[in-house]
Design a binder for these strands. Structure first.
Length: 577
RNA sequence: GGACUCGUAGCUCAGUUGGAUAGAGCGCUGCCCUCCGAAGGCAGAGGUCGGAGGUUCGAAUCCUCUCGAGUCCGCCA
């Protein structure tokens, strides 16, 4: 149960009751909410109902607040209801109310915080979608972790989530991959190939691919013309790279449900069909674009092009659909891809892109709007750059020289859990520094350690209790939990369902990381009090009843940490080493 | 020239979708601890939210303008 929704509905029924008694006008709107107060000193809950209702009710906010507060005081869970400031109502709840929440948490386990928000609606989250021309590197990791955590989060919020990867296996880049692989193939067969030609991929990661091809086909392709080997070797290389990508992603804990091929979209006519649909809607025409101002390409020459009328849907210019040789642009294929997702039943789509694709957002949104007549929604989340720091110094990355930190290396160095956690400690659209030393530090300013440590401490309590965590609770037992630190932990736990929903709605999984940090901070603080004062320790040998109640609290904390980490895709640890 | 994202404490960043005295960590200052419930604890000082207007009962949050940083800008994907 989300306690804030619970009390919002109580306020609503009291407003109706007051209207029924003639003390408020009937038919007032319900734009108000019961929320946690920003200032803890203001109480447990606060509502702006009187402020929101003042205008439609044509009454002073404080007068409405007084009426409502009077009614709210009559509820058994409400300890006090005070009018404050311009007309807020601050509620304090009985300890028993908070204690009762522990029941709900223990009963639900890590399902506590699951929401019906999504109502089982299908949603497609597309992420990573890196070109199959090389191994994944740090530039891809953030999107991978963000997308995966978002998918987990949406699942927890009640959506039917499909995790999808779009393979850009068409176009010049995969042809270059095929040529590069052919060079490595010749090399594997003993030829002296010299330096890798300009325009091809020089990375050593293609050596094993060439060797594997040689092992499979022997010298078969050596004297054949390019027209014969290009396609089969391209397919071979793409398969090899995608196998590596999938293996690396699996190491990171990322597994997609669906891999969609761009090449297949072209091959089976889906591109042509999508574009025909766009054309039928009157969104395609032939025209001449203005050159971009301020950065005019040297070889610019005006020419008529097949254009999508993106400006009709909020974009700045209309966008080309065909290259000068008549083939489809990448954008055209991407339109077809989103059309395909929509026809597969996804009215809701999320794309996770890197910062360098920011300029592409408007046209894609425009295309989806045009294709679906507004029935499909596309949210595009941009992940800003990650700077990897070693000893406080940025690690230089040059793709051309082939020196970049790969995902596999990153995981080998600090572990998948640390990688995932750190990637979620920033909002997706803010730049992120990844300090390789800091993530392994055992201190409070390393959130990975801090949160894991809290979970380990919970497990430690459980171990030392000898497995004596009560499976059932009763109000009398939980009534022993009256310490201020215990109560603020209970209040924090009650924020979890609300945190999940808000994060899911905003598509912001980083909020989970921040919540966990706050929760564990309070847990550690309570633990530390036990260092000085044995009476507030979780295990009090001379008081079994109190210990039982506290074990319930600790177990509830552990479950919420574990379910938060599950959303982040981080494994909770039982002990620190 | 334009588009997009970001400007919040000395530093790195949150900010519950417009609420009441803007939060956390680091750093700084002070006090306490040296305890395996280890990998420190507690407390304090410190920002008017880049700047200027506007909307609102109420703005870090929405609008306009402006300054600064990053990313991007036909036929690459």
């Amino acid at each position: 149960m989300d306690i804030f929704k619970h009390f919002t509905s109580i306020v609503t029924s009291e407003v109706e009751a007051l209207a029924g008694a003639g003390r408020l006008p009937a038919g007032l709107p319900t734009g108000y909410a019961v929320e946690p107060p920003r200032e803890v000193g203001h109480g447990d809950l606060t509502t702006n109902a009187a402020l929101v209702l003042a205008k439609p009710a044509r009454l002073a906010p404080r007068a409405i607040a007084e009426l409502l507060a009077e009614r709210l005081r009559g509820h058994a869970d409400v300890a006090s209801a005070d009018v404050a400031g311009p007309g807020f109502i601050n509620l304090r709840l009985q300890d028993a109310f908070w204690q009762r929440q522990l029941d709900a948490i223990l009963a639900a386990g890590t399902a506590y915080g699951d929401s019906a928000l999504g109502a089982g609606e299908a949603i497609n989250v597309e992420y990573v979608s890196a070109n199959p021309t090389g191994p994944l590197h740090v530039g891809h990791v953030r999107g991978a972790v963000y997308g995966d955590a978002l998918a987990n989060l949406l699942q927890k919020a009640g959506f039917a989530v499909t995790r999808e990867y779009y393979i850009n296996d068409a176009g010049a880049q995969v042809d270059a991959l095929a040529h590069s692989t052919f060079v490595r193939y010749r090399e594997a067969l003993g030829e002296a190939v010299g330096p890798i030609p300009e325009g091809l991929y020089p990375g050593e990661y293609l050596q094993p691919v060439g060797a594997a091809l040689a092992a499979r086909d022997g010298r078969h392709w050596l004297d054949r013309p390019q027209s014969e080997w290009l396609e089969p070797i391209r397919a071979f290389a793409i398969d090899a790279m995608m196998a590596e990508v999938r293996r690396d992603l699996k190491e990171l804990g990322v597994e997609h449900d669906v891999f969609s091929s761009e090449r297949a979209l072209h091959a089976d006519g889906r591109v042509a069909r999508a574009l025909a649909a766009l054309q039928a809607g009157g969104h395609v025409y032939t025209g001449i674009l203005e050159p971009p101002k301020g950065k005019k390409p040297d070889d610019w020459e005006p020419r008529p092009q097949t254009l999508f009328r993106a400006t009709a849907f909020g974009d700045d210019v209309d966008r080309p659909l065909r290259k000068s040789d008549g083939s489809w642009t990448y954008f055209a294929a991407d339109i077809a891809y989103h059309h395909d997702k929509f026809t597969r039943g996804f009215r809701r789509m999320v794309d996770v892109w890197g910062a360098d694709h920011g300029g592409y957002v408007k046209r894609m949104r425009a295309a989806v709007a045009a294709l679906t007549g507004g029935a499909g929604t596309l949210d595009i989340k941009i992940c800003q750059l990650v700077r990897v720091l070693r000893a406080g110094q940025p690690v230089r990355m040059s793709k051309r020289a082939g020196e970049f930190v790969t995902l596999a290396e990153l995981i080998r160095e600090v572990g998948a859990d640390a990688v995932r956690f750190i990637m979620l400690t920033r909002k997706n659209d803010a730049a992120l520094d990844f300090d390789l030393a800091k993530v392994l530090e055992q201190s409070r300013d390393n959130p990975v350690f801090y949160v894991q440590y809290a979970h380990a401490r919970c497990c430690s309590v459980r171990r030392r209790s000898g497995g004596a965590i009560p499976s059932r609770t009763d109000p009398a037992m939980l009534a022993r939990l009256g310490d201020s630190g215990e109560l603020s932990l209970m209040r924090r736990l009650a924020l979890w369902p609300r945190t999940v929903e808000a994060a899911a709605e905003a598509h912001e999984p980083h909020r989970i990381a921040f919540y966990l940090y706050d929760l564990t901070q309070e847990f550690h603080a309570q633990w530390n009090r036990g260092n000085d004062d044995p009476a507030v320790r979780f295990i009090v040998p001379e008081d079994e009843g109190l210990t039982q109640a506290r074990l319930v609290l600790v177990e509830a904390v552990r479950m919420v940490i574990a379910s938060g980490l599950a959303v982040m895709g981080v494994k909770p640890v039982e002990e620190m080493r």
